[in-house]
Design a protein around this nucleic acid. Structure first.
Length: 482
DNA sequence: ATGTAC
């Protein structure tokens, strides 16, 4: 396949016309400025590569926060027919069910001085283990109990006293992938997972304190429980070493089975298996189990966030108004029903660095939000903003109910470290009123704001394209990084 | 993202 050609459909949509082995067109959501940035790496080529996979339904899509990933681009969305189609670990990513949850409070900006914010972030840092390979000293699981976590997800955590029953309704899938198969998770992955439940991890994972700075849609904000100057808490983490190991294990397995199923791939990183094959089913089962680990992980971390708040303010959580707005997956493959043409069919939707953005009326959305659409939570970089959006009908028609997931990198980790040489990123953030506490200095450099696109520009694209709509903008004030 | 190269 030669040089990638993008044709403008409108100011927010670019088509990669089908050619060569492609079975369908590619579709990138971006502004003209962003597209020129996107064309600097291999990500548009990856969108075209995904379009060659058997059984793809609709376009091979990418969101404006697209950048190069393993096989599939990060920011990629692709749906596959359950009979003819394939499932691919590269379409989910290494951090299976990496995702975010947003907690709201009754507290406002005036309840927290700069000093209090620092002390609160420090207290969170003491109470939630973070960093590469972090584990909880007070908590380790037997293999049997870990398998219960993998089968039950956030429900397991609630049964063990981490959070409340009503939290489950405010988590994508109720915090549990029902078709997860813990027996398809290798003993090596189990070993890595058993001491890591309830830990934040590293890289872009974080706990962020912020305030509601701007409301765009008052009606929806009210339904989501958001109001101006409100203190909010973002938690961003995934399935840690366990999910990583599942991905590793199945890439090795599926690389071997490519020939067996006669799949012709432009890039071996797209290794995959028919959804209906034993290998495909095994991957989906193991991936679902890892996804459940991540749902339980975020549920447990928000319990310790709640505990930290209660001790810090010496006020019970109910009076602080701490509650879970929503919890969403960024890296996952799901079996969902969608209207394709005039037929309702089941497809396997891969979202890799992309968020579900279901519009009004879908039964998967909690009853309290169902009339307006699901909450879509978009963390930005630690120096600028984060957003709350809402899912739309247009997303249902166009993107299998999907939108962007964040800002998207513009500098690689290595480039970011180079760009931050001789600077103190923590001090620069402090000058903007943001306190950051990290497990490692290196991570803070890798995660410097300029390593990311401006998330407001990413959000502008998905809002104008109509695949999700702006509800509120949040401003970070205190960040705990892994 | 990741016991950042078993």
């Amino acid at each position: 396949m030669g040089k990638i050609r993008c044709v403008a459909i409108d100011p927010w949509r670019w088509k990669i016309p089908k050619e060569g082995q492609m079975r369908t067109d590619g579709l990138i959501y971006a502004s003209e400025d962003m597209l020129s940035l996107i064309m600097q790496d291999q990500s548009a080529q990856q969108v075209a590569n995904v379009a060659t996979l058997p059984g793809i339904v609709g376009y091979s899509m990418a969101m404006p926060d697209i950048h190069q990933g393993y096989g599939f681009p990060i920011g990629g969305v692709a749906a596959f027919d359950l009979k003819e189609g394939v499932v691919s670990p590269g379409g989910v990513g290494y951090d299976i069910n990496c995702g975010v949850r947003l907690m709201t409070t009754h507290l406002t900006r005036k309840d927290l001085s700069e000093e209090k914010i620092k002390a609160l972030v420090d207290a969170l840092f003491e109470n939630v283990p973070s960093g590469v390979g972090s584990s909880r000293k007070d908590f380790s699981l037997s293999q049997g109990e870990l398998k219960n976590v993998l089968a039950e997800g956030a429900r397991w955590a609630v049964q063990k006293g981490f959070g409340k029953e009503q939290d489950l309704d405010h988590i994508e899938e109720g915090g549990r992938i029902p078709w997860a198969d813990p027996d398809k998770v290798s003993s090596k992955a189990l070993e890595r997972g058993k001491s890591q439940l309830g830990t934040l991890g590293s890289g872009n994972h974080f706990i962020e304190l912020g305030f509601v700075e701007e409301i765009y849609d008052e009606k929806v904000a009210k339904i989501f429980g958001l109001f101006p100057d409100q203190l909010t808490v973002f938690v961003h983490t995934g399935s840690r070493g366990l999910g990583h190991q599942v991905c590793d294990d199945f890439i090795a397995i599926l690389l071997k089975s490519i020939q067996k199923y006669g799949i012709d791939l432009p890039d071996r990183q797209l290794c995959c298996a028919p959804i209906s094959s034993p290998e495909g089913k095994a991957y989906l089962g193991a991936m679902g189990a890892a996804a459940n680990f991540a749902f339980a992980n975020r549920q447990m971390i928000s319990h310790w966030v709640t505990e930290t708040f209660e001790k810090f303010f010496k006020i019970p959580a109910e009076r602080l108004g701490l509650s879970l707005l929503y919890d969403i997956a960024h890296n996952i493959a799901k079996i969902e029903h969608h209207l394709v043409g005039d037929k309702e069919i089941e497809v396997c939707v891969h979202r890799k660095g992309a968020t579900r953005s279901f519009g009004p009326g879908r039964e998967e959305i909690p009853a309290v939000y169902r009339s307006v659409g699901q909450p879509v939570l978009i963390p930005g970089d630690m120096g600028r903003y984060s957003y709350v959006l809402v899912g739309t009908d247009r997303a249902m028609k166009e993107t299998f109910g999907s939108t962007c997931h964040g800002a998207g990198r513009v500098l690689s980790r290595h480039q970011a470290i180079k760009a931050s040489k001789g600077r103190s990123i923590s001090q620069e953030l402090a000058q903007h009123g943001i306190y950051v506490r990290g497990a490692s200095k290196e991570t803070i450099k890798e995660e410097m704001p300029e390593a990311y696109k401006d998330v407001s520009k990413v959000v502008e694209v998905v809002h104008n394209a109509g695949i999700s709509r702006k509800v509120a903008r949040l401003r970070p004030v205190g960040v705990m990084k892994g």
